[in-house]
């Protein structure tokens, strides 16, 4: 899975924001803001990832327990899917 094309992650005045671009503006229904770890996962998802690879990356980057990392990745992916932002390979 990866993030759909035509979305840009921007850091503006200390906030991470996901901005639709080009043709995706047709589907623009609201702004998305991410915290630092959400932005970390978003950047990874600009290339193909699996749920497991995201959890592994999170464990390597942050001092967090595996079960919590798994919960957080699942919650993040769920939010991205609900927003129609993910493309499954």
């Amino acid at each position: 899975m990866k993030i759909k094309d035509n979305y840009i992650l921007r850091e503006i005045a200390g906030s991470y924001m996901v901005i639709p671009c080009g043709e995706e503006l047709q589907n623009f229904s609201g702004m998305i803001t991410l915290n630092e770890t959400g932005a970390f996962l978003w950047k990874l998802l600009t290339t193909q990832q699996t749920q497991e690879s995201l959890v592994a990356a999170l464990l390597e980057e942050y001092d967090v327990e595996q079960s919590l990392a798994e919960q957080d990745v699942a919650a993040f992916l769920n939010a991205m899917r609900e927003g129609g932002l993910l493309v499954d390979a």
Partner: peptide, 21 residues
């Protein structure tokens, strides 16, 4: 690891404006 979907433009704009200022 929250993703917040903002529908409230005015609130988001106010928050960003304050940080930008």
């Amino acid at each position: 690891m929250r993703a917040a979907f903002y529908d409230d433009w005015a609130a988001l704009k106010d928050k960003l404006s304050a940080a930008a200022l």
